[in-house]
Every structure is written in structure tokens, then in C-alpha cells.
């Protein structure tokens, strides 16, 4: 049980790190959104479900209730993160942020 929690948490931190490196390294705004939207969703899901699992190690009514709330957070992040990404992308397109193109393919 503890090993599973540790594994989930470490993989969550790994994907958080990927997202952070991605947001620092990628060349343009739109590709940064890839790193931000996907890796953060997965990492938060992994880490938060690890917390929910660990919280169940003493089975009582209160801890089950708290784990339910933790799963609400997972569910909410799952819905909110793509929506936020979508809103930011649309705002960027309307404002007219230029996408990065490989040299030579730019019109």
C-alpha cells in the first residue's frame, strides 16, 4: 500500500517536472500549452489519487468522506484543466499571437 502511494506520488512529481521543463523550453505559446494542459492534468490526477489512497489507510467514516472530497478535486481538475487550456488558446487566437513555424515554411 505504502509502496503504491509512493510510486503514484513520484510519477506525479515526474510529470509535474516534465510540464515545468516544457513550459520553459518549448519555443512558442501554443506548444507550451501542450505541456501545461496535458502533463499538469495527469500529474495532478496521479498525486491527488495517491493522497486519497493514503488517506484510506485507517478505514473510518470520516476518512472515507475525506477521500470522496479528494476525488472531487480529481474530477474537477479533469474538467477544468482542458477548459482553461481551451479558453487561453481561443483568447490567444483572437488576440493574434503568432504560432511558431519551422524556418522556411513560414508564408
Amino acid at each position: 500500500m505504502n509502496w503504491l502511494v509512493t510510486l503514484l506520488m513520484v510519477s506525479g512529481v515526474f510529470f509535474f517536472a516534465i510540464g515545468t521543463i516544457g513550459i520553459l523550453r518549448l519555443p512558442d505559446f501554443y506548444s507550451r500549452l501542450h505541456a501545461a494542459g496535458k502533463c499538469d492534468t495527469l500529474a495532478a490526477t496521479l498525486a491527488v489519487s495517491a493522497i486519497a489512497l493514503y488517506n484510506l489507510h485507517d478505514l473510518s467514516f470520516a476518512s472515507i468522506l475525506v477521500s470522496w472530497k479528494v476525488f472531487f478535486i480529481v474530477f474537477f481538475i479533469f474538467m477544468a484543466s482542458p477548459t482553461a487550456t481551451h479558453a487561453i488558446t481561443k483568447a490567444a487566437l483572437i488576440v493574434g499571437v503568432e504560432p511558431w513555424q519551422r524556418k522556411g515554411t513560414r508564408k
Binding site: 510529470f15 516534465i18 510540464g19 521543463i21 516544457g22 523550453r25 518549448l26 519555443p27 512558442d28 501554443y30 506548444s31 501542450h34 505541456a35 496535458k38 502533463c39 495527469l42 500529474a43 504560432p99 511558431w100 513555424q101 519551422r102
Partner: peptide, 21 residues
């Protein structure tokens, strides 16, 4: 899968060659 793909692109030294937005 998609996070692993992003990880591959981000950690690749010449990542600009992998992209074609």
C-alpha cells in the same frame, strides 16, 4: 500516452526537429 509523448519531445535535445505545428 500523450504525457509521455510530450515528455519525449520536451526532453529531446533537438526538439525543434520533432515539431511541425
Amino acid at each position: 500516452l500523450s504525457s509521455l509523448q510530450v515528455a519525449y519531445i520536451v526532453l529531446h535535445p533537438q526538439m525543434l526537429d520533432k515539431m511541425e505545428p
